[in-house]
């Protein structure tokens, strides 16, 4: 099996809607994903630029604001397959779970990208919980 799968999740003490405002905005990934220094958007295409010097082109596959699910695929040649998924799941009025999953072939890339996703979730939680809680929509 060459497909690797990594899932990171954590609970954020803010509403799902408030977290989705940032986590679901494809153009703001670099604001909370450590190691992504900038990005370019062109329709459903996104290119992220990494602190290590690499740039990775991506296709945005799903941007579902109702179920709060965002999916994208890194399309650079080293990946036979990649799918990144961010789910923001409401738990309580001001509490949600964010799941950031990564599947990749080669499987080692799932570990490397998944490690970045882990740190991104930590940073997302830090930033969100510094913000005042917004009233639920």
């Amino acid at each position: 099996m060459t497909l690797g799968s990594i899932r990171n999740e954590l609970v954020i003490e803010r509403s799902a809607d408030q977290v989705w405002e940032l986590a679901g905005d494809a153009s703001r990934l670099h604001e909370w994903f450590p190691g992504i220094v900038s990005l370019d958007m062109d329709g459903n295409k996104r290119t992220i630029h990494l602190a290590g010097g690499l740039s990775m082109p991506e296709d945005i596959v799903i941007d579902d604001k109702i179920s709060r699910r965002f999916e994208y695929s890194i399309t650079m040649p080293v990946f036979v397959f990649h799918r990144g998924t961010i789910d923001v799941i409401a738990l309580e009025e001001n509490r949600c779970m964010v799941v950031y999953a990564c599947e990749a072939d080669p499987r080692t890339m799932a570990l490397i990208i998944g490690g970045g996703c882990y740190r991104a979730l930590q940073e997302l939680k830090r930033q969100m919980e510094l913000q005042p809680a917004k009233a639920a929509n």
Binding site: P34, G35, I36, L50, A51, G52, L54, T108, I112, G115, G116, R119
Partner: peptide
Amino acid sequence: EPFLDPFAAFAEN
């Protein structure tokens, strides 16, 4: 710290 680090997350790198 890990060597494989495209995000330059680790100081050693």
